[in-house]
């Protein structure tokens, strides 16, 4: 017997549907705060024992003697992520502009599945590709060119692999965003005597800027949390990186490498939870910042 066979009044059924949709919504709403809270509970012992500033701003990492300083990990994460964005954002913006405004229609049609395939490749494959291609290239070609010596397992390798991984992701969003710029607006600018490039530079990019910022924000969150591919090429040495050819040890790599392994050391599980919490909070901060930027811009311009 199906639900619709029951002689339930339409109002009642409507109410029922309302309820379960509301329930789904509530689950999603609760998820993020619950995660945050759980991580906080688990990592609180370390805070209480070592103190907040000691944990965040010290780079002394000696778990055996109870010293957990996260600065090197935070800095490594920031280096890798920001460098990955520097490498990928210009490529994404220019590619999306090219695809929408310059390329023939069929090019975009071909590109769409290619982008989807790139986005769907498991990250471990990017990691292997990084070890086979990028790491040797960095150690043999790029670093010597700038006069540095490195094994190739470095911030730069991590950033390059990461950049390649987030490009399809950001590109997809940017293409959709540029598509929403109304044709009438472009026609207006052109009929005022602007060239195509002027129109793109002064009108299209300006109109799409909030979307561009939020796509960068999303790419950043993804890059910041990416684990496997990065840990395979980044070197995993606990140190404050001084240049891009140094090895680093980002937060996600720390968690993935050690969870379940080092649990006999006191406070270690608390420390890993704290690493997760820091990751969470930094992504949150970036998200909020990009929202604020977008809001400000919208009030000023659009």
């Amino acid at each position: 017997m199906k639900l619709s066979d029951l002689k339930i009044s339409r109002q009642l059924r409507s109410k029922l549907h309302n309820k379960w949709m509301y329930l789904c919504f509530a689950v999603i709403l609760i998820l993020a705060p619950a995660l945050l809270f759980g991580l906080y509970i688990k990592s609180a012992p370390l805070f209480e024992q070592n103190g907040f500033s000691e944990v965040i701003f010290s780079n002394e990492w000696k778990p055996l003697s109870g010293k957990f300083g996260f600065l090197s990990f935070i800095l490594s994460s920031l280096w890798v992520t920001i460098l990955a964005l520097i490498l990928s954002v210009p490529v994404c913006i220019l590619t999306s502009i090219y695809l929408i405004y310059y390329a023939k229609g069929f090019v975009l049609k071909i590109m769409h599945p290619i982008i989807d395939i790139l986005a769907g490749i498991p990250s471990v494959i990017y990691g292997v590709w990084g070890i086979l291609m990028i790491v040797p290239m960095v150690s043999k070609d790029i670093a010597p060119f700038f006069g540095y010596e490195t094994t190739g397992f470095s911030i730069l390798s991590g950033a390059i692999v990461l950049a390649v991984m987030i490009i399809p992701f950001m590109l997809n969003i940017l293409i959709e965003i540029l598509r929403t710029v109304p044709e009438g607006l472009i026609e207006s600018s052109l009929s005022l005597g602007a060239s195509k490039w002027q129109t793109i530079k002064f009108v299209v990019v300006k109109k799409a800027l909030p979307g561009i910022v939020s796509s960068i924000g999303l790419g950043l969150s993804r890059a910041f949390g990416e684990t496997i591919a990065v840990l395979m090429v980044v070197g995993n040495v606990v140190q404050n990186p001084t240049n891009v050819f140094d090895a680093g040890y980002p937060l996600p790599a720390l968690i993935a490498n050690n969870y379940g392994e080092m649990m006999s050391i006191p406070m270690y599980d608390s420390a890993l939870m704290l690493a997760a919490l820091i990751l969470f909070v930094i992504v949150l901060i970036f998200n909020i910042l990009s929202r604020i930027l977008i809001r400000r811009y919208e009030i000023k311009v659009a």
Partner: peptide
Amino acid sequence: LLSQRPYPLPM
């Protein structure tokens, strides 16, 4: 050109 709907430039 004056179009059906006004399209003010984003500035």
